[in-house]
Design a protein around this nucleic acid. Structure first.
Lengths: 215, 215
DNA sequence: TAGATTGTTAATCGATTAACAATC
DNA sequence: TAGATTGTTAATCGATTAACAATC
């Protein structure tokens, strides 16, 4: 079967579809048309149908989409039907916040370990997980089938840690360090650059102010 | 002067340019051509020149771009030359993490106040800022020239809090709640949906595994 | 002046939207 | 069957890349 590559633009929209469909499901809504969904989500019905059809036909002509079925299918596409073990590197505020976030567990992301180079933090308990020293990271990754490493460390140490993780078989890095990681092909990196996001907000504030000043 | 609207695609790239130029500046690099920058950042030189030219000519033919000048100009475009007062609503782990993040201060984002509905958290000190009860939020926003509210509360309360903030003159919301906020025109919202980001990562892991299985 | 590199126009590519035939 | 709504093709729009004239 010839499979076309799905664009990242489409992938980026899937979690949002998943969220809306989950809410509809919880409200007991059984079916929905692309038209109704488009009004709810403020995107075009055309885009919704195109997006879903990248993965095959989930709907039925004259009926629309079955909410529960579509929800489940998108979940599968996103890999939420599988378990992913993750560790957090960096037990600072942000690392702890992510470790404590229970919703990840619901989606199959299991918090397995936490590491920090600061001896004062080693031994600290975060939701049942004890912070370990950095030296134990490699062994732990190999022995515990860890897929994802969450990097909540300063940018200075990030590249080196990423290399060590990759060398020990990590599959994906969720990167909160403010640096672009260089990893080999096949290792997935998803960046969350918070200050970039804040700067965008700052731009748009200024932008609106300029608009208003003109008027 | 007829001003063309700058696309969000361009805006999204500005913080990354800003970061690279800051690093070059710190390394003492004086000038750089779009070609060199393109190799460093792994984007096309053409895109770099197009992006910068949205805001007017920052370079010089035959020379390239002056790093320090370009860095400053992009900073100005992003509004980093101005001070922005912000408050954080929700004093949980994530809120505290953001409150403690010193780098925001460097960019002109000043942490002024923190609010939580949980009485057990009220009075707690986060980097010199005492957590206040939610009832004081409106007054505080009005009296302290607050531009930005950071929402680190559960989705259930987010919409109501956003409305109260908007009613009291907030200009922008940095939204970490997993919900799409409905705000009037002119109020800027920047969403950080962490679980969306994690799902994208999850998709890409699965995607690569499928690729490999086929081969 | 010659060489380098920008600023900018034109060409291409990809993503979004519109339209409609297929079909439930 | 008639009506509704998908799946899919075609048209449009916007963003990226290539090319080159302008100019330092």
């Amino acid at each position: 079967m010839e499979e076309k590559e799905i664009s990242q633009a489409v992938i980026s929209r899937l979690p949002r579809y998943f969220r809306y469909l989950g809410e509809l499901k919880d409200e007991g809504v059984e079916r929905i048309s692309s038209q109704e969904l488009s009004e709810l989500m403020k995107v075009t019905a055309s885009q919704i149908r195109q997006d879903f059809n990248n993965f095959g036909g989930f709907g039925q002509q004259g009926y629309g989409y079955n909410v529960e079925y579509l929800y489940k299918e998108i979940g599968k596409i996103l890999g939420l039907d599988e378990k992913h073990n993750f560790i957090i590197i960096g037990a600072g505020n942000l690392g702890q916040a992510l470790g404590n976030y229970l919703n990840f567990e619901r989606r199959g992301f299991i918090f397995r370990g936490m590491f920090d180079k600061n001896p004062a933090l080693v031994g600290k308990d975060v939701r049942g997980v004890k912070v370990m020293p950095m030296e134990e990271m490699e062994r732990f990754v190999k022995e515990n089938d860890i897929d994802i490493a969450v990097l909540t460390i300063p940018k200075s140490g990030a590249e080196e840690v990423a290399e060590r993780l990759v060398a020990n078989g990590i599959r994906a890095i969720w990167n909160f360090a403010h640096v672009d990681l260089n990893v080999p092909e096949g290792i997935q990196v998803e960046n969350v650059h918070l200050s970039d996001s804040l700067m965008k907000l700052s731009y748009n504030i200024g932008c609106y102010k300029r608009e208003k000043d003109k008027a």
